[in-house]
Design a protein around this nucleic acid. Structure first.
Lengths: 354, 354
DNA sequence: TCCCCTGACTAATGCGCATTAGCCCCCGAC
DNA sequence: GTCGGGGGCTAATGCGCATTAGTCAGGGGA
């Protein structure tokens, strides 16, 4: 067996020992020369040259497995998304995050390991528990709101470096990065107020995710802060509740601006658009509309929604930075909230004169 | 230093030795139990259970680098793309391919490592250079046409299991899987011929990628096979060359069907749509249009293009199957061409009666 | 009773590299 | 001349795991 392995591994792959033999030095010296001699050990230029020459001649390339083993870290970052890894539908919402993750990871010299939550590998004997699989990486990013809290807690408590993308407060020991929905929403409200709107309504789907409640909190806070009136509507089926009649009733009650939040389906925003049209109103002129997030691809054009953009790529990058900090310093001193960028858009305008 | 490294490495990363201590057995036994005991060494069910229990309790996961070094395998598959795997410019992306790769890999019990051949990676001396990094994995998928051929050749010649996604013929030793563009294009031509079209034009960007020349080959072949007339236009800037006037001229020359190929930008297809409109013609009625590939997201709706879909997920899955074969058998007896599915669409109709 | 299996484990080793202790020799200072 | 002190290298060790040789009881046959 040993010979087989050797033959396979050897095929055209010189090791430092062979370079050393050719150069007439020790393996240590080869390592020293090739790895840039960070120890500050003095080396003769001649020796250096001989080693480099020998390495070139043999076509030496270090074995990454050995390097990583010796370094006691593998420079692998896990990316765990608990929904069927990169499902086509959710793809649109996670994809930009992955872009940021990849860029930052590459910049820092990490490779990425992809993990799927749902389609866990055939639970073979000896295979460890689903979440434990991420341990093959030095640290891991968790994505999505369905990450099982108890397993994640155990991982974190055992000191495994993990960063959750999206605010997460049940676990106070868990590092996370998230968009600052509250502040971004508050800014939208302030902008609308600046345009003269005194009453606003926020339309949401029934959802208790922090991404949603944060927006609601920001909305209410800004409303109160500016002495505005308005309310929040949570509808299980926005299309059913948000109708033309509803819009008219709101208008009658002094609400001139309507705000919806981005979700996977953007049901609330779609309902709002339909309802306004149904009410025979036009968007920037008679009522103002704002979307707390980015519109889905099929609604992206023409009337660009006023609102804010979630800096998804930046979120991914921030997550990697946090994880990297965890990995090198053991503790991250970070600001988890990433600001969103206000997007002027074309669906909000001055409040109509009463 | 040793303590520092140890402390760092230890952090939340149990080793077999620790599992062994907890289970009251030797590290060897743990290895035997966890790796399925391929040596046929007898083990007490009790011992086995104790070890598994201890491993679960500690959340043990094997270190891929160590596995790779010791056994020359770690059940990791690499995915290497020279450009970012998750490109910033949305549409074209490798994403759908990755979905297929992911599914097939998980089904076969492999984990995926994403290697991004970065332009920006710190190319320090001694640090494994771009392509050699993939050696951490048992085998690797390569995608994109910018994979450096010479480095890839070296890898393959040294016996490293690699599969390229997308036809690749400069390296006859390199395994690859690709969409059967030629046949798919030929089918489109045949369908158009069935609709009565006797003259057709293929519009391409200037591109010498196989994906493009294969289509051209299929086009010309089918044209000849059916005794049709027509030609191929390659334009550096399709928008400039493909005009309403050009379309009219073609029509006058007997060309009633226009075909474009999918590219990153889909410039040819866009140009075609514009030109036809400019010529005052409507698509299914007066001229027929076909797209060799899938439309970009922003053009996906309403007039669904006649043409074919590239089975990207299937391509990814096929690549994994091929790689798996390489890994287990050392040689893959495979059919590299994956068929594309014809898409009826709504832009092609009967040829207008002359 | 002795011996030799055989079953159930474990000690020892090595993968290729980085790191840590030295080791040896030459040179300058006393 | 002797001794201290670098400079320039090398021997030894360990990273975490798989593998190869054992080792050590217990049991059955003679």
């Amino acid at each position: 067996m040993a010979e087989v392995r050797l033959a396979k591994a050897r095929r055209g792959r010189p090791r430092q020992a062979e370079v050393a033999r050719l150069a007439g030095v020790s393996q240590t010296t080869v390592s020293l020369v090739l790895s840039g001699n960070k120890q500050g050990i003095a080396l003769h230029p001649d020796t250096r040259a001989r080693v480099l020459q020998a390495a070139r001649q043999l076509g030496y390339a270090p074995d990454p497995a050995a390097q990583r083993l010796a370094a006691a870290r593998n420079d692998l970052l896990g990316v765990f998304s608990f929904t069927a890894t990169f499902p086509t539908d959710v793809a649109h919402s996670y994809y930009p995050i992955l872009v940021g993750v990849e860029q930052e990871a590459v910049a820092r010299g990490y490779d990425l390991v992809l993990f799927t939550g749902s389609s866990s590998a055939p639970a073979q004997a000896g295979r460890t528990d689903a979440l434990d699989r991420v341990r093959l990486a030095d640290g891991c990013l968790f994505l999505g709101r369905h990450v099982p809290a108890d397993e994640l807690r155990r991982l974190v408590e055992q000191g495994y470096p993990a960063v959750h993308i999206g605010r997460r407060d049940e676990l106070d020991t868990l590092a996370w990065v998230g968009a600052d929905y509250a502040e971004a929403t508050a800014e939208v409200v302030r902008r609308l107020a600046d345009l003269g709107h005194r009453g606003m309504a926020l339309v949401c789907e029934t959802d208790e995710a922090l991404a949603s409640t944060d927006r609601e909190r920001g909305f209410r806070g800004a409303l109160a802060g500016a002495g505005l009136s308005g309310g929040v509507v949570r509808a299980a089926d926005p299309a059913a509740e948000i109708t033309g009649a509803w819009v008219r009733a709101q208008l009658a009650a002094g609400v001139t601006a309507f705000v919806a939040e981005e979700t996977d389906t953007c049901a609330a925003w779609r309902a709002l658009l339909t309802a306004v049209e149904e009410a025979g109103l036009t968007a920037p002129a008679e009522v103002s509309l704002a979307l707390l997030g980015s519109p889905p691809a099929d609604l992206a054009h023409h009337p660009e929604p006023t609102g804010f953009d979630i800096p998804k790529a930046e979120l991914g990058a921030a997550a990697v930075r946090t994880l990297a900090a965890l990995l090198t310093a053991g503790e991250a001193d970070y600001s988890p909230l990433v600001p969103c960028a206000f997007r002027p858009g074309h669906t909000a305008g001055r409040a109509p004169a009463t």
